[in-house]
Design a protein around this nucleic acid. Structure first.
Lengths: 356, 356
DNA sequence: CTGTTAGCGCTTTCAT
DNA sequence: ATGAAAGCGCTAACAG
């Protein structure tokens, strides 16, 4: 079992070495290694033995270069491994892409410095830097890149250098940038209608403080901006802002009920923050959904783990991922050449669990 | 900007096509594409233009076949994208492997059926099936596989067919199976000592119900088995069992305090369950750490999001990942031939936050 | 069942 | 500054 030359850094063992050592042709080695039919069982065993003796490992590159069915490699750029929203998407993506026969390479735009913090979904400058790095890194390894990006279209297109990009949850304009989005506005309309039907008369919101125009100053997110247009002055509850984390949601909730106790319905920027709000309600002695209805956005599995279970505007990952892979497939059929931007819209749906 | 033949499924555009169209040799195209020196700026621009016109994308495989610096590809097998413990490891792994210049391919052993459930870290038969599939899938794509596996050594070694495996948090024995483990026992010793020092007189545990011997019947996990040896009869609190999820931890906690209210210290199988326990304490009117001290295992960032913040036996991901990558590097230096099993042990450490 | 021939698409020599 | 030749390591196709 002890390998030959295990410690030396000799040239790579190739199919030729095995063929020579076993006294057969390269083709026979190929047949043995790949469980092919047209080979004598005895020969096969001998070849396999020799190959193991020599420590032969077929070259992936050579193999894939010559194989008929070209493997297409997808790069998935994950914004954060700390927010379950992203990791669940990543998980689905890996599954479904794999099922469709794609290879999936991953990169993260998260700065290592953030490693210890609970700061998911932050759209900061560190992410832009990470994106540039990911693009540069994966550019030569994959056929197309999919992910959540924050860099401006123009920069993104430039950095991609001809490689097609599929932007998740964001619209595109530049050529080579395709997109898959949720129609969050439609979902918000449905959510608000449902909330009203359940008796909500004062609607508030906890928004994310991470929305900035680059200068670090808070700017209402599109979610908030749209929600504002939906509520009239006398239906309007408090709109507050918090950090994008469980703790941030809890804190914002406390502030909201303190400043505006009459608010009886709250839409929260995302589930993580909404979970914080639900948790905080226990400590503050506020009943959910009795005193106030809380509605998250994302549809995280984690939301089922809190009590009461979190109601949420579910951004269906499966649908998002499938739509993205459909785009990839179209791109693939065009050999990943630059074509007119492709766009897919996915309808979210409400998960009425318990908190609203 | 409109591409030539964007809709046709023609043969791939190769370097030869570009060379011919631009009226230069293939080498000149290579030089232009790769920003090399010995080329006239004008020629370069012309080539680049033609290449874009044709929608030329250099072949990854041909390139890597011939390139000096061989790229090594790592396969990361993720047990679950739903348990933050695994995704945080995956995140770190991607970061650090990337930083070391490795390519990272991912696969998941999670059955798609589980997609909606909050059942992380389950060691069921579906995982074994997923593992076999992942191995089969990645075997030809990568040089080495790293991940959490549940299949028996022998099967694993057989399925790997000569490809080296680095087992995370599990020991190995078969040749070709290397391992990186935490010394959880040492951590448990330290945790128990600290708990006693803080006044705990009755020590209990919430164990995972997913530990089975294949027939579906519960078997104490190694964590529990070791803990049992550490507590004397008159120091022993209740030992209960629950599902590996937030909800499962909450439920088990309720059962524990009901059956054994005198238990004043609890070690929980993992952080997710411990978070459930902490949450449940609010509903039950039990003070943590006043009435009972709760100690998780894992060191999840998420544990900082609950109140009180979860104390935990931190299994340092960075250290684990680094150790795994060290093993990979050694393997790489031996051209991934079969060598004697490599083993690394990582010491965990206690994070005394608030709950204990 | 086994061997021979012919590339896959690209980057390296090395000439020119 | 450019081109010609020579493979990288493997498998598909066709012989025998």
């Amino acid at each position: 079992m002890r390998p030959v030359n295990a410690s030396s850094h000799r040239k790579r063992v190739t199919i030729n070495d095995v063929a020579a050592a076993a006294g057969v042709s390269r083709q026979t080695v190929t047949r043995a290694m790949n469980d092919m039919d047209e080979i004598n069982e005895v020969t096969k065993q001998r070849v396999l033995e020799v190959s193991e003796q020599l420590g032969y490992r077929p070259s992936r590159q050579a193999r894939s270069l010559v194989e008929r069915r070209k493997t297409v490699a997808l790069g998935l750029v994950v914004a954060s491994f700390r927010n379950p929203y992203y990791t669940e998407i990543a998980g689905d993506f890996v599954h479904r892409a794999t099922a469709r026969g794609y290879q999936v390479l991953m990169a993260s735009t998260e700065a290592p410095e953030e490693a210890g913090s609970d700061l998911p979904r932050a759209a900061g400058r560190s992410h832009a830097a990470g994106e540039a790095a990911s693009l540069e890194l994966l550019r030569r390894q994959v056929d197309v890149l999919v992910g959540h990006f924050v860099m401006p279209d123009a920069e993104l297109a430039a950095a991609a250098r001809g490689m097609p990009l599929v932007l998740l949850e964001r619209d595109s304009s530049a050529p080579g940038l395709h997109s898959v989005e949720f129609d969050i506005e439609a979902g918000l309309v449905e959510a608000v209608a449902g909330l009203r039907r359940r008796g909500v008369t004062r609607l508030g919101m906890i928004d994310s403080s991470y929305s900035t125009r680059g200068d670090g100053r808070y700017v209402p997110t599109p979610r908030r901006a749209f929600l504002e247009t939906m509520v009239s002055d006398d239906e309007r509850g408090a709109f507050v802002v918090g950090e994008e984390s469980i703790a941030g949601g809890a804190q914002a909730f406390a502030e909201l009920v303190r400043t505006s106790p009459e608010t009886d319905g709250i839409v929260v920027f995302n589930d993580l923050m909404a979970i914080g709000a639900v948790q905080a309600s226990h400590a503050l002695g506020i009943r959910v959904p009795g005193d106030v209805r809380i509605m998250g956005i994302d549809g995280l599995t984690l939301g089922e783990g809190v009590s009461p279970k979190l109601s949420t505007l579910s951004l269906d990952r499966h649908a998002l991922v499938d739509a993205a892979l459909d785009v990839v497939q179209t791109l693939s059929e065009n050999d990943f050449r630059v074509i007119d931007p492709l766009r897919r819209i996915v309808r979210p749906r409400i998960l009425w669990r318990e908190s609203a």
